[in-house]
Design a binder for these strands. Structure first.
Length: 275
DNA sequence: AGCTACTCCTGGTAGC
DNA sequence: TGCTACCAGGAGTAGC
């Protein structure tokens, strides 16, 4: 699933491919992917827009551009199965193509999405708003101290708190499990019960696992996530607990357990993560 | 305010 | 083999 490392990898690869391009038209194949707009509606918003920059905030990609000197932009959230690729405009469609933006250069940006949960939102900067989001994991403003202040009043399990984008931006199910393993913390521990030392260990573990995943272009354990040039990520080869149910822990050989925490499948080592 | 349950989707797969 | 039932996932929302 695209989480911070995957979305940032997409951003890095896509940026040089789209910056400088001017959109000539949009083809909408599934209008719920873009707030109900049809091809004419999305084309009206985007034709003539020249792309200037591609940013990332949390798991959102922010395409910024301008038309006649006025800023116009769109955001894309890939959710679970969304994929962005740049192809020749004459290239055949993927059967799961939902939206396509055609450029004046003869290239096109394809937004494919098997499960149709991904979203593209278009408008002026004031219209393309993001929900309330917590700090970026690599931002200097996030620390063990700050994290403890955010969770010390919470009774929910730490796994659920890591997934809450209002508290911390960019971590999803895979990296939450991997970070908790590296920090030696049980996913069921309540926020209120975490010590400052444990919060510091968790902050370090989140940064460590996200850095390692970025260095491998993210994780592709299923057929969904690919970079914009079609390459799979490699971090799935470094999972310690995620999708390793029943397999021996690399640290202590105890079989990895899968349970449900906050309605999410959660993988952990019952020996290394007793606390 | 904090938390849980439900919704959106479809391909893959487990079980019969 | 062919069928059905269920599962995965992020985030928005309704409701307690």
């Amino acid at each position: 699933m695209p989480e911070l490392p995957e979305v940032e990898t997409v951003r890095r690869e896509l940026e040089p491919l789209v910056v400088g391009e001017t959109i000539t038209r949009a083809d909408v194949h599934w209008n719920r992917s873009c707030a109900g707009l049809n091809s004419d509606g999305l084309s009206a918003q985007l034709s003539g827009v020249r792309l200037r920059a591609l940013h990332r905030r949390a798991k959102y990609l922010l395409f910024r551009g301008e038309r006649a000197g006025l800023p116009q932009e769109f955001s894309v959230h890939l959710r679970m199965t969304g994929r962005l690729t740049v192809r020749e405009a004459a290239a055949p469609y993927d059967p799961y193509l939902r939206v396509r933006l055609v450029f004046d250069s003869g290239l096109a940006l394809h937004f494919d999405d098997v499960r149709k949960f991904g979203r593209l939102l278009v408008g002026t900067p004031a219209e393309v708003t993001l929900p309330a989001l917590g700090p970026e994991p690599f931002d200097a403003s996030w620390s063990g101290c700050v994290w403890r202040d955010r969770v010390r009043s919470r009774l929910r399990p730490i796994k659920a708190l890591l997934l809450d984008q209002r508290l911390l931006a960019g971590v999803g199910n895979i990296y939450a499990d991997e970070a908790l393993f590296r920090a030696g913390l049980s996913p069921r521990r309540r926020g209120v019960d975490l010590t400052l030392r444990e919060c510091e260990a968790l902050v370090a573990a989140v940064r460590e696992v996200l850095s390692a995943a970025l260095a491998e272009d993210g994780a592709s354990f299923d057929r969904f996530y690919r970079t914009p040039t079609g390459q799979p990520g490699r971090f799935q080869d470094h999972f310690q607990v995620y999708s390793r149910t029943g397999k021996p822990c690399y640290r202590c050989s105890t079989p990895i357990v899968r349970v449900l925490v906050a309605q999410r499948s959660t993988h952990y080592c019952p020996k290394c993560q007793r606390n």
